[in-house]
Amino acid sequence: MMQLNVLIAGVGGQGTLLASRVLGRYALAQGSDCKLSEVHGMSQRGGSVVTHVKMGEKVYSPVIEPGGADVLLAFEALEAARYAHYVKKGGMIIVSTQKIMPMSVVTGSAKYPGDILDKLTEMGYNMVKVDAVGTAERAGNIRAANIVMIGCMAKLLKIDYGQMRKAVGESVPQKSLEVNLKAFEEGFNAIKLP
């Protein structure tokens, strides 16, 4: 049984919740135990958000500890850095190269570290950078960048294409089914395994 801890980080409104629910549905279909921890309310308003996905034989805490994530799925570069220390040794950061300025940067009280992804690579993290927004745009809707990321992760972790695709199809609203399946396919194909 696949034991997998995925931390999904992003900015409120980027669809981390939906992404985690796709993984939850996938886990359940595999017969795994699974827990997801979500963020609702105040913290969703354009703030930094993080959702935890844990699957395996038996899951107790729904929360991933620092150093406990197999994969950090980051929808934004700065958020990848914010949660990088959650990744375990040998784990992986899959990051959308999109940059969203936090208010502290907009008002000039802080600077967006432009080279942040290079810095993470230097620190020894196993980084996979993805143009999720561009890929989603090609699939038909930039809002499907979250599902592009799921596609990328499925390919990188050698998860069965059909089973994850099914989980995507069952998790997204009916009216955006087609574009999300397309986004998943594009994300999956965007990754070239060595």
Partner: peptide, 11 residues
């Protein structure tokens, strides 16, 4: 943790 600018919620 890597030190990065905070991102609190906004209107």
């Amino acid at each position: 943790p890597v030190l990065v600018p905070p991102r609190p919620p906004v209107l």
